[in-house]
Design a protein around this nucleic acid. Structure first.
Lengths: 343, 343
DNA sequence: GAAAATTCGGAAACCGATTGCCTCGGAGGC
DNA sequence: GCCTCCGAGGCAATCGGTTTCCGAATTTTC
């Protein structure tokens, strides 16, 4: 009823074309030596039956599945999406499919998924997650190559592709210096969060390089707008003057921007603000739009997938692969020349 | 080097346990009649070798892949994630894996993925997308069941799971009425966007039911904060008085809220604001936190997966399945009793 | 103690595609 | 006219499991 019968097999094709199964296979794959007429006859039969080779059967003889697993160690989230898109993009070009597994931060689930993927004989595995902190390897002595994307493994021999967050932070500071700011404060996420620490210390080092101190100690808090707003209160109360705030995330930066405006400080005229992540929703919704550091997660995903593909082809690239961040300048740090930001 | 040898096969297990492959298979799957001792011996051997049955081989004889494909018709995005999580959740419990395919709004890509999935003999397919507008069926007479999630198919016989957006809009209006608002304006997304139209007309109908007119015509624009802000300018300029705004999305609602505050109107005292989507980042970042309609996308994904599972088991549930929305009340519509919203 | 019933486990077919090897027939060389 | 060579395509093994059928060994039954 509406459903077609079971999918056609190569035997059906062979029978319809009046050849043997082996010959049909050769005709469809361009192997062996066959008359052109025979080849076409088989192809026509396959077309007519809507034949699609059974991937499982193919796998069984070739040993390849043309499949990779992607395990997110913590829940699939905002960071995973661009990664996923990049991975999909690079793998799709190689005609490979992706198994998506959501580890939910649960090591048991993670190991269960790993087993499942190995049982499905994936050609390779990509491990990713929300936290950039190095994590224990997902397994050792695995029969397939593994690439860590965005996250890295504590085993330095494992192949990982990560963003140069420290470099991104330095670019942010350089930009603020370039637009003439000297009293730069820093507001960021939790002190135990790897990215917060990395970005923060890189920023401070870069300031020191320019012979400057940050305007007050870095303020650690949460990755939220509410914290950004509270932090502004603290800055205004305790710190001396400041003409810029470098924030550990766009959410924090947005909270900071809103609170500054509420306190009567103009952005960017009085205080310039830089965020991190270049999350479109935050960055464009903000008034004015936020200058931010972009980790190019999609490119990172693509790179990870490409490394995995070459590893599958027998050329592993062990160790960390660090990719640069990019600073996207918007109106929270520069006054536009000939246009006033519209509401 | 570091890589273990090829994965163990059932022959390896059988050899180690000193039985035939058939017996080993029975022992591992609890079939046939075997002595407990034999069973244990085989299981121990499997354990020792880290044996994981080759899924392709298993597929070949059983015909089942324990695999489903998930095709997003447009790019994987914010709406897809909760859906994906729900789907993953429900399928994971059934020990099925998910192939993720990103259609990118490109029918050619979509058909390519469909072919790939069919070639992989997935047990079923879930189709989803960013737009709730009914879309042409992804294929007809397919050999596997298909469930549309969030999106629906133009063929009313196709199984789809969608959110009752109209009902959600009615709940929003009812709530505003319940907190005493009578002059309710409506600001939403593009007029050609299905959700915008559905939510808007349901809201107007519900107002009519209460004998009310909306405060001015619905304002169609974009799904952005900037539009929400601009719309407030229009409301203040042209509309008469209004004491509430129902917005077509949280982004719009947030823009509206910000602009209202900037114009000196207090939220919720002077104007109550309701959003749609219950997107945590928007809803919690907003000042004050937004009351919003939640479509329960995760539950929707779970429901879609469950329907797919039962369809795979031979009990299809054709037609649309509409699931209720839920109103989440926050401070943008109600003044908290004993606490003042903190900045 | 022999026939029947039961238990246990092996042999082999099968799933669907790939591939190496072999055969058959026609063409060409001497 | 016979032999060789080559092109075309069939046969069958193979991949790794599952499952059916059957035989051997043991136990039960009278």
């Amino acid at each position: 009823m509406g459903k077609s019968a079971r999918p056609a097999t190569i035997s059906d094709v062979a029978a319809l074309a009046g050849v043997s199964v082996g010959t049909a296979s050769k005709a469809l794959n361009g192997r062996g030596s066959l008359r052109a007429e025979t080849r076409q006859r088989v192809q026509a039969a396959a077309e007519q039956l809507g034949f699609q080779a059974n991937a499982a059967a193919r796998t069984l003889s070739s040993g390849r599945t043309y499949t990779v697993g992607m395990i997110t160690t913590d829940t699939i989230g905002r960071f995973s999406i661009p990664l996923l898109i990049g991975v999909e993009d690079a793998l799709g070009a190689g005609r490979m499919s992706v198994f998506l597994c959501d580890g939910r931060d649960d090591p048991i689930r993670e190991q269960y998924y790993l087993k499942t993927l190995l049982s499905r004989r994936v050609d390779g595995i990509i491990v990713t997650g929300r936290h950039a902190r190095p994590r224990p390897p997902i397994g050792s002595g695995l029969p397939v190559p593994v690439v860590y994307a965005f996250v890295s493994s504590t085993d330095p021999e494992d192949c990982s592709v990560v963003a140069d967050e420290a470099g991104g932070a330095r670019k942010a500071i350089d930009h603020l210096l370039a637009v003439g700011r000297r009293r730069i404060a820093h507001v960021t996420g939790p002190e135990h969060h790897h990215s917060a620490v990395v970005r923060s210390s890189a920023a401070i080092e870069q300031l020191a390089e320019a012979g400057l101190q940050p305007a007050g100690p870095p303020l650690f808090g949460e990755w939220s707008e509410a914290w950004g707003r509270r932090a502004v209160g603290m800055l205004l109360a305790t710190a001396g003057e400041f003409d810029a705030v470098f924030c550990g995330s766009d959410q924090v930066a947005r909270g900071v921007t809103d609170a500054l405006r509420a306190a009567g400080r103009r952005v960017p005229e009085d205080v310039a603000v830089v965020g991190f992540d270049n999350w479109d929703v935050m960055v464009l919704g903000c008034q004015p739009p936020l200058t931010s550091v972009d980790m190019n997660l999609e490119g990172l995903g693509r790179a990870a997938a490409d490394l995995l593909l070459t590893a599958i082809n027998g050329e592993p690239s062990p160790g960390p692969h660090v990719r640069p961040c990019r600073l996207v300048v918007r109106e929270s740090t520069t006054v536009p020349v000939d246009s006033q930001p519209a509401g």
